[in-house]
Computed example of a mutant assay.
Amino acid sequence: MSPSPSPEFFTDPRDFPGLDVYAVAGNPIAHSKSPTIHQLFAKQAEQKMHYGRLQIDLNHFANAAQSFFAAGGKGMNVTVPFKLDARDFADLLSPRAQLAGAVNTLSIQEGKIYGDNTDGAGLVRDLHAQGIELQGKRILMLGAGGAARGVLGPLLEQSPKCMTVANRSNAKATELVELFGELAKKYQVTLESCTLAQLEDSGTTNSPWDLIINATAASLGDSSPIGSQAASKIFSPGSFAYDMVYGKPTLFMQQALQGGARVSDGLGMLVEQAADAFLIWRGSNLSQAIDPRAILVELRS
């Protein structure tokens, strides 16, 4: 039997009569900015709803999610480490969730639990909002785990010229290249893989990348997935470096700045993927009523 979660991080829909209740589920979850973001969306769109937190014990996601929806919950965002559990919990998956192999948004549609993944769409919109053109560009993705897989499809759909997935283990990078091979061919993208160690070799990095995305967890531990030698080859004054981690200047971002590149953390991606989830739950007709960039400015201030 699962131990009871802390009351501070447990949202019971029955405690909010008259309101549609949503929550973000994860472990840990105290740090999540999602409740703030969604309450700001609700204020912009004049929606009566409550958005809280669910700290779920490891290995108990399905039971907790079932209880949340049975009690009247309308939708759930899912973060680390439960995105695969959410995929298995859903009755139906969107095409992008199937491709990502993970779910970060659960909703109820015609009595069934529907799983979607808004991470990739959120990243693409944040990049566009920052003036980053993707079509015809050279993209380097650092990492081949769940974060990379979740955004690879939407990035390929933007028709970059080429995309390289670099990972510590070449096997995982090659697996992603094979998995997304047909999609890359559809959008005429050259999709390749290499190891992080190969990035130290000038033959692998014979010309600068337009966009370098850090999809590894290295920044969470105050390190970088690449060494100084690779950084000196990868970054240039014309490139843009994006770290999916947010809330602090990371070593990866510092390396990019030293190479003359522009940089961004992942807070904009967080807000934009939340906007996608909000519209799934409350209706696409509200797309003109919400302003994700205004919320991003408020969060940064």
Rank of each mutant, 00 (worst) to 15 (best):
E46W: 00
Q47Y: 06
K48D: 09
M49N: 00
H50D: 00
Q55C: 12
F61K: 06
A64W: 10
A65V: 13
Q66I: 04
F68E: 10
F69C: 12
A71G: 11
G73C: 10
G75H: 11
V78L: 09
P81E: 08
F82W: 09
K83C: 09
D85G: 07
A86Y: 10
A86S: 13
D88C: 14
A90M: 08
D91A: 01
L92S: 13
L93I: 14
L93F: 10
S94M: 10
R96E: 14
R96H: 13
L99T: 12
A102I: 11
S107A: 14
G111K: 14
D116I: 06
N117G: 08
D119V: 06
D119Y: 05
G120L: 02
G120H: 02
L123G: 04
V124P: 10
L127Y: 11
L127R: 11
H128R: 14
A129Q: 12
G131C: 09
I132Y: 01
Q135F: 04
G136H: 09
R138G: 02
I139M: 02
I139P: 00
M141C: 06
L142N: 03
A144T: 04
G145P: 07
G146P: 07
A147I: 03
A148W: 04
A148Q: 10
R149T: 01
R149I: 00
G150R: 05
L152E: 02
L155F: 01
M163R: 05
M163L: 15
V165N: 03
R168I: 01
N170H: 04
A173P: 04
E175A: 14
